[in-house]
Computed example of a mutant assay.
Amino acid sequence: MSTATGSEEPRPWTAARFEVVLRDLLTAAGSDPASTATFAEAGYTSSRYGLRLALPAGAVVYLQIIAARPPDGRSDEQGPPPPQLRAAALPGRGRTAMTAVERYLISVLTARQDPYVRWVEPLSALGGSIPYGLRITFHSGAIVCCYVAHALPSASSGSVPGTRFPSIQHI
């Protein structure tokens, strides 16, 4: 996740930098660049940092990116990379399970085997107040969260296009 520019080392745990990193990783993993846009590019003004992802089946997911905790200053910034997860490709038609979106994003993040990242967890497994998204823990002690802030179903899902998804579990 690091590409040094000059003598300055980027901090992947800032929301702005993580937005760039995740977008680059999605593109490198084969996502169509046109299917991924920053919130600013998409005109989504509910949050400053995040990505709009158009899924292969036509649904759209908005991932809000928040730097939840800064580095603790006591830990090394780098260490062993997180365990790599391989996930099935997202379906090309029909409804998509939100847990499948989480697994896909985790596979994209862990495939890089980045030494800054310690662990990537799906929010659905944590039982918190935000049901879907990711929590990325860095070796530095910093945490970045990607919350599913909004989602729109595909036209083939039987929902009215442009409305919020009818089920929190599938879009």
Results as ranks from 00 to 15, higher is better:
99 T>G: 11
41 E>Q: 14
137 T>R: 15
65 I>D: 00
55 L>T: 14
104 Y>V: 03
122 P>L: 06
44 Y>G: 01
62 Y>Q: 09
153 P>I: 09
29 A>Y: 05
128 G>Q: 11
17 R>Q: 14
121 E>S: 14
20 V>C: 04
91 P>K: 07
130 I>V: 15
64 Q>N: 12
129 S>W: 12
49 Y>S: 03
88 A>F: 06
149 A>C: 08
17 R>I: 07
155 A>S: 14
139 H>C: 02
165 F>N: 13
15 A>R: 01
74 R>F: 08
4 A>S: 07
101 V>S: 00
120 V>E: 00
25 L>K: 12
64 Q>T: 09
144 V>N: 03
37 A>L: 15
59 A>N: 01
38 T>Y: 05
137 T>S: 14
140 S>E: 04
36 T>M: 06
72 D>N: 14
5 T>S: 13
69 R>F: 08
115 P>G: 08
33 P>D: 07
69 R>N: 10
125 A>E: 15
8 E>R: 13
6 G>F: 09
63 L>I: 04
73 G>Q: 01
135 R>D: 02
130 I>C: 06
156 S>P: 03
90 L>E: 10
102 E>P: 00
11 R>C: 06
70 P>C: 02
85 L>R: 13
2 S>Y: 07
28 A>G: 12
89 A>F: 00
165 F>V: 14
128 G>T: 14
11 R>G: 07
41 E>R: 04
151 A>C: 07
71 P>F: 05
101 V>I: 15
100 A>G: 08
169 Q>S: 13
81 P>R: 01
87 A>K: 07
10 P>A: 10
29 A>E: 07
74 R>S: 10
41 E>K: 06
33 P>K: 08
110 T>N: 04
140 S>L: 11
32 D>M: 04
101 V>W: 03
119 W>D: 15
52 R>F: 03
60 V>W: 00
69 R>G: 09
131 P>V: 05
122 P>R: 05
120 V>M: 01
10 P>N: 05
18 F>V: 05
115 P>F: 01
62 Y>V: 11
35 S>I: 06
15 A>C: 07
46 S>V: 13
43 G>E: 08
71 P>D: 11
6 G>D: 03
90 L>W: 02
165 F>L: 13
51 L>Q: 10
93 R>N: 08
97 A>I: 02
113 Q>Y: 10
101 V>F: 03
170 H>C: 10
170 H>S: 13
11 R>Y: 07
37 A>I: 01
30 G>C: 00
59 A>P: 00
29 A>G: 02
162 G>Q: 11
127 G>T: 03
52 R>T: 14
163 T>Q: 15
41 E>C: 02
38 T>K: 05
112 R>C: 13
58 G>V: 11
1 M>F: 11
66 I>A: 10
156 S>W: 01
77 E>M: 08
78 Q>D: 14
18 F>E: 09
15 A>G: 02
166 P>G: 10
62 Y>P: 00
113 Q>E: 13
97 A>M: 12
103 R>I: 00
76 D>W: 03
13 W>G: 02
138 F>I: 08
74 R>N: 06
29 A>V: 05
126 L>Q: 15
